[in-house]
Amino acid sequence: MEMDDKTYKKYAEKRAKKSNLAADCAKAFFVGGLICCIGQAAGDIYKALGIGEENVKALIPVTLVFIAALLTGLNVFDNIAKFAGAGTLVPITGFANAVVSPALDTKAEGFILGVGAKIFTIAGPVILYGTLASVIYGVVYYIAGRIF
């Protein structure tokens, strides 16, 4: 084959069938927006029940995480995600699915070396880099507060 690697890679990428961006974005927008509204509604319900604001803030993600975990267990989440793409990935539901699905999947390897060790294989980076970024931010914030 008389084509160098770089040219071939470009050729293969160029001829590759592309995703339908407009349709994918519309689905992501709709499902993502809907999940956020469910979060908003959950917050309003908890407030109406007389729960304090700080606890409502904590209960919204807990509620969505619960729903996503249950749907993952019922083998439904992956089908919704196939349709919604980033619409289920970006909300906290995606984080929940990223924790729950490896836990469920590695049960065969046992509860310590399977579930225990693999539960963060996908979501781990989010916690690592999120925490790291927040600590760096905290140090900068603290120093800035001292100087100014």
């Binding site: 995703s19 994918d24 993952t72 267990g73 083998n75 989440f77 992956d78 919704i80 995600a81 196939k82 793409g85 289920t88 990935l89 995606g94 699915n97 990223a98 729950v100 699905s101 490896p102 469920l104 999947d105 590695t106 996908i122």
Partner: peptide, 8 residues
């Protein structure tokens, strides 16, 4: 990915 992971 795990079987129940939601991805496209």
């Amino acid at each position: 990915y795990p079987l129940e992971y939601g991805g496209q």
